[in-house]
Design a protein around this nucleic acid. Structure first.
Length: 539
DNA sequence: CGGCCTTTGAAGACT
DNA sequence: AGTCTTCAAAGGCCG
């Protein structure tokens, strides 16, 4: 769990962490990249200043007051916990109205016991913004749907998912209703508002965040996110929710990307297809960051391949300040809390059975063990030495792609390693990785051989990566666990900034001073646009 | 069409 | 307790 819950931010103020995890040879890259990140940081900081002013708005307080009608229902211990969290955090994440043209209802602090803050508090976290935009709004592209006033399609039976507490939300509409007066006065301030709209981008759901106005039929169709639920993307509660995704798992995107979202269709489809919901994991901080920044990276670097983009995003993630990361950690924390509220019986293990039922039955439990063993064996086959680089790109780096084996060039398993580790031990050149947003990873270099090597859209254009400017490529996800033992990796990953996991995230957490039931949770979800997803199972 | 790639973080299983 | 594995998003690529 992010160390945001206490300490008054002392752990966020340190400024020495940004260097510690930098790898050698990154100086040049750092200069270039900092030019970018600092720009964003400046924007962000400015937005934070502005938002603190804007949130003084009485309208915001009025909106918040309208949301304090429900009873408390969770143990005080969680409240205590969250109080500590909220005291420090609730003013930081959800008060930035920096985004114009995006209808974003600030998280109504159902998560935060201090939700009944006085108007004088600058921690007013409920800000309806039809024109203002949350700094993380692009993380919440599905939040558009949240602005549907008084959803008329709420089913009476909201207990579709087994074990999910369903406190009926008679007053849900109260949370969705957005007083018109509360919106337009929020002046879009800067911050990521400066992010361009990418009209030409492939539909990834971000650009809309910058251009949407109040929800409408058209705006729904413009939002590709899963919350723009399609036929089967209905939350068990009946509220369209990003956690509800079609069985295919990708349908959501295709469907919504193509603007096929039609609300009546949601209802009819849902009636036709009673499904078991497969609840997706809540997004972690980095995932949220990725969702937001992906479009930006794509636009700047004209990249399309997610693997390359993710490498860039991973680097930028490390380049973020603590404060910046803290926002995402906090958002992720709230997502987890919401997720836990919505699906108390859900376990991450439920989804270990990919493609199977989201409900972990006994059979799934057995299959899970088998699958796990299979994967383990598979990895051992190709990687008898888990701690060592196993791919040509890691061994030779970008500058020596001619030394790569064929499979490595085709993103396949490195045959050299399988053939006995014939690859020479890595030198400095094996430290190749994305050096800048413009430098694709060696593994993806093939992609750029038929793309623009140095996109003009990337700032700044990068020459072919030099070993001196390269940083170590992070090991594959399945080998990271080994590298965690590596002190350098530990430093590189800036473990000091890694917020400890919320060990009690699966305990009930009082999310609000007065909202504790499903309606509160759902309204909070709608307000915050949290990205919980449920994959409904086709019959 | 399914799986891979790639990233970090969270959670659960395992040792 | 520490380690390991899986999944979350994304979309192009490959067999």
């Amino acid at each position: 769990m992010p160390q945001l819950s206490s300490g008054g931010g002392d752990d966020l103020g340190a400024n020495d962490e940004m260097i510690s995890f930098k790898d050698e040879g990154e100086q040049e890259e750092k200069i270039q990249e900092n030019a970018f990140t600092e720009r964003d940081l400046a924007d962000l900081k400015s937005s934070l200043v502005n938002e603190s002013e804007i949130n003084q708005s009485p309208n915001a307080a009025a909106v918040r007051r309208g949301q304090q009608s429900e009873e408390r229902g969770f143990p005080d211990k969680h409240r205590d916990h969250l109080e500590g969290v909220s005291k420090q955090q609730d003013g930081g994440l959800y008060k930035s109205p920096a985004y114009s043209g995006y209808p974003f209802l600030m998280l109504p602090d159902p998560y935060l016991p201090n939700s009944s803050v006085s108007p004088s508090s600058n921690k007013v976290s409920v800000v309806q913004q039809s024109h203002g935009m949350h700094p993380l709004t692009s993380l919440l592209p599905y939040s558009n749907d949240h602005f549907s006033p008084s959803p008329p399609h709420l089913p009476t039976d909201m207990s579709q998912k087994t074990g999910v507490h369903r406190h009926q939300s008679q007053d849900l509409s109260g949370y969705y209703s957005l007083p018109p007066g509360g919106v337009g006065q929020i002046t879009p301030s800067m911050s990521w508002q400066s992010q361009p709209v990418y009209p030409g981008l492939s539909p990834c759901g971000f650009r809309q965040s910058y251009s949407a106005n109040l929800p409408s039929a058209s705006s729904y169709s413009r939002f590709p996110h899963s919350l723009m639920l399609g036929p089967s993307g209905m939350h068990p509660t009946g509220i369209p929710h990003p956690a509800i995704v079609p069985p295919t798992g990708k349908q959501e995107h295709d469907q919504y990307d193509r603007g096929m979202y039609v609300k009546p269709q949601v209802e009819t489809k849902r009636e036709k297809e009673p499904k078991k919901p497969v609840i997706k994991k809540p997004l972690n901080a980095f995932m949220l960051y990725m969702k937001e920044m992906r479009a930006k990276v794509i636009a700047e670097c004209t990249l399309k391949e997610s693997a390359a983009i993710n490498q860039i995003l991973g680097r930028r993630w490390h380049a973020l300040t603590r404060e910046e990361q803290a926002k995402y950690y906090e958002l992720a924390r709230k997502e987890r809390q919401l997720h836990m509220q919505l699906y108390p019986t859900w376990s991450a293990r439920d989804n270990y059975e990919a493609g199977l039922s989201g409900v972990a039955g006994e059979k799934n439990k057995a299959d899970w063990g088998k699958r796990k063993r299979r994967k383990r064996e598979k990895q051992q086959d190709s990687n008898t030495d888990p701690g060592s680089p196993k791919k040509c790109r890691a061994r030779f780096g970008l500058n020596q792609q001619t030394d790569w084996c064929g499979p490595c060039r085709r993103k396949k398993k490195c045959i050299r390693y399988l053939q006995g580790g014939g690859c020479p031990s890595p030198t400095s050149s094996d430290l190749s990785a994305i050096d800048s947003p413009c430098s694709p990873s060696p593994a993806r270099h093939r992609l750029f051989q038929h793309q623009r090597p140095h996109s003009p859209g990337c700032s700044p254009p990068q020459p072919p990566a030099s070993p001196l400017t390269l940083i170590p490529l992070s090991p594959p996800a399945h080998t990271r666990s080994h590298t965690r033992l590596n002190p350098e990796q530990a430093v590189a990953r800036r473990t000091d900034l890694r917020h400890p996991p919320a060990k009690h995230t699966h305990t009930h957490v009082e999310l609000s001073g007065k909202q504790t039931h499903g309606s509160a949770v759902l309204s909070a979800a709608k307000a915050a646009g949290l990205s919980l997803k449920v994959l409904t199972e086709t019959q």
